[in-house]
């Protein structure tokens, strides 16, 4: 879609200037992070934060990697495990539920859907404390399960899945497959999942970022640093850095290392976010 109106030169300059000012605001902390990550602990405090001073990025990165028996890699692995497995299971389970709610009629269907929808509105942190108490009842506190189990559910995914399935999965195709004698599960895994891929990708991305960025749940559940995700690990470095000044540099280096891949992914996968949002949440 293109705007038919061609704005005057003056308003075009004004518009671009406005967009640029906003861009400076959003980029500035990232710029500072990149510059700060190259400095020694001394220069971090002793030189201007806006310009390079004796850059030693590789040394800093090696320090982050090697500190405390390379625990950084362990945290990266944990974060990938929580986010990857959590998002994958959540996507399949909620897309299946959304498809079922869209294409099968049964008693209580709408009531069930409304209950799931209410789940989207529940503040996540309000659940973390009672979840902790439940997990401690069954002895799962401070295990991988304590973070994984609450991560494999996405009410938003079921909601998006239902809307998407109604629009993208034709009834005639399902009927034809049934006449050919295909079982319902085969239909779901071979036909429906493929048709619903755009919605599934959107759900996966949202869930992945949601788990990756989550802090409250792992904070409440985990006490063993070996099971920490990145967020918790970096904060544990920051919280003792007033006693161990070298950890300032570690925290900054770790923050850069953990943000860059995610920022690249976020930006390059933008069209998937938009695709899912246009199809789903906004139309609903």
């Amino acid at each position: 879609m293109k705007n038919p109106r061609t704005p005057s030169a003056a308003s075009r300059v004004l518009l671009t200037a406005g967009l640029a000012v906003a861009a400076v605001y959003f980029l500035f902390p990232v710029y500072w992070l990149v510059i700060a990550a190259t400095k020694s602990t001394g220069d971090l405090f002793g030189s201007s934060g806006l310009s390079l001073s004796n850059p030693q990025l590789l040394t800093n990165i090696r320090n982050v990697f090697e500190y405390n028996g390379s625990i950084f890699f362990r945290w990266v692995g944990n974060s990938l495990l929580y986010s990857g497995v959590g998002a994958l299971v959540a996507t399949v389970v909620s897309i299946a539920a959304g498809y079922c709610l869209a294409k099968f009629t049964f008693r209580g269907r709408d009531a069930l859907f409304n209950i799931f929808l209410a789940g989207v509105m529940i503040p996540g942190t309000a659940l973390a404390l009672p979840l902790f108490l439940l997990m401690s009842e069954i002895g799962l506190v401070n295990t991988y399960w304590a973070v994984l189990l609450p991560s494999v559910i996405s009410p938003f995914g079921a909601y998006l899945g239902r809307i998407y399935a109604s629009a993208a999965v034709p009834d005639s195709l399902l009927e034809a497959a049934r006449l050919d004698g295909a079982g319902e599960f085969r239909i779901f895994f071979t036909i429906v999942l493929r048709l619903m891929t755009p919605a599934a990708v959107t759900v996966f991305l949202f869930q992945f970022i949601g788990i990756w960025n989550n802090y409250f749940l792992p904070l409440v559940m985990l006490s063993d640093p070996d099971r920490y995700p990145l967020t918790l690990g970096l904060v544990s470095w920051q919280s003792v850095s007033d006693r161990h000044p070298e950890l300032y540099q570690m925290t900054i280096g770790g923050a850069l290392l953990s943000s860059v891949p995610l920022m690249i992914a976020i930006v390059s996968l933008q069209r998937f976010w938009r695709a899912g949002l246009t199809e789903g949440s906004v139309k609903g």
């Binding site: 959003f26 980029l27 902390p29 990232v30 970022i209 990756w212 960025n213 802090y215 990145l230 967020t231 970096l234 904060v235 923050a255 953990s258 943000s259 995610l262 920022m263 992914a265 976020i266 930006v267």
Partner: peptide, 9 residues
């Protein structure tokens, strides 16, 4: 871009 950076970071 900032949406990709965890809140705590």
């Amino acid at each position: 871009l900032p949406y990709g950076i965890p809140g705590v970071i």
